[in-house]
Design a protein around this nucleic acid. Structure first.
Lengths: 204, 204
DNA sequence: GTCTATACTTGGATAGAC
DNA sequence: GTCTATCCAAGTATAGAC
């Protein structure tokens, strides 16, 4: 097997391990067993276990960001955006992409310097979320800064992942998305009424 | 030192350890060092490390639930509820109460049966959140089932904790609460307008 | 690049003295 | 109820053969 193949197999195994064994259970031996290769190769290719885990996060993050970027600009309404996001998030839940992140955030507490590197991986997401929120909140019926909205959405996704993981059930998390879509649709419809309200308040 | 005192010291040390070292770093030796006692006492008093961690979660959960229950029934508006919740949540962020939960949820992946016990601890919170949401959404301008709203709020709190932990900064999480308060205030004000809208839609 | 073997450290858990 | 001492399993990491 070529070096590149082994690297890829280890990264894939690390993702699986974080998903199914958690950060605490993602030891070099466990990951190597999942990859079907020797434990020493982790240190040869990546230097240390945390370094491999970060590489795994970087790969997942980059590939999923591509998927989500496809959403941007294709919808002008809140409901449309939520709807599109739901589809991709359903994939994430099923494949455990977000869990890679939540496990690493939790685990970062026990490895000095790890938090900084995870934050670097998460930063593009924050920018993306902010752009997406800004595009849809620009003429929203309620004044909501894109910054706070984006922060809340990212937090919400992380939290939904944690709960889905705890319950071993994703349907409740997806139901929240469905509800958010309906809620967003009402906001979309309320735009004219809300601008009326704003004028009334501004004059008081 | 009496047995009860040691038990309490160990639970307190376990909370500290989960907070500052994470689940992966909360070993028997680390916790015992924080408690200023011998590592063997953990097994004497609690049987195993996970058992101690669950006991820690149970204590935090019970004491915080008391704090939050004080909110219920004292406010009829969304803005009022969010406002009150913000104060208590600020304490939680500072003291790391929620982190005990997030670390355990993440860590549950690597300890068979742990997830079930955490869920048992979280269940009363879900009931509480649902009651709180129902009390405030009953005559809300938008139809939102209390069940989904409660699920979203719990997820949001977990996610905000994760982000605050990653950033080492709580202000952004609290800013989301402030924004939610303003947003809730608008919903509170929109009630008459929304009922008008509903009648209009129903007749079309 | 990959394996075996191994050194070293840390963690869970128990036995037995006090 | 608490401590010391200890066993054993599992973890990280490296050296060296292939």
């Amino acid at each position: 097997m070529s070096g590149e193949q082994t690297r890829a197999a280890l990264i894939s195994a690390a993702i699986q391990a974080l998903r199914e064994d958690g950060f605490a259970g993602s030891s070099a031996r466990v990951i190597a067993a999942r990859a079907g290769c020797n434990q020493a190769l982790i240190f040869y290719h990546f230097g240390s276990v945390p370094d491999l885990l970060v590489a795994a996060l970087e790969q997942v993050s980059a590939s999923r960001l591509d998927a989500y970027r496809g959403l941007l600009g294709h919808t002008a309404t809140i409901a449309g955006l939520v709807d599109a996001a739901r589809t991709i998030f359903a994939e994430d839940l099923a494949a455990g992409h977000v869990r890679v992140l939540t496990e690493l955030i939790s685990g970062a507490q026990s490895v000095p310097g790890l938090g900084e590197r995870i934050r670097a991986c998460l930063d593009p997401w924050r920018g993306f979320a902010q752009t997406a929120m800004a595009s849809v909140l620009a003429d929203a019926p309620v004044q909501v800064p894109a910054e706070q909205a984006a922060y809340a959405v990212v937090a919400g996704i992380l939290g939904l992942e944690l709960l889905a993981q705890l319950d071993g059930d994703q349907s409740a998390a997806l139901a929240v998305f469905d509800q958010a879509r309906d809620f967003g649709a009402v906001l979309d419809q309320l735009r004219p009424l809300a601008s009326l309200l704003r004028r009334k308040q501004g004059g008081s």
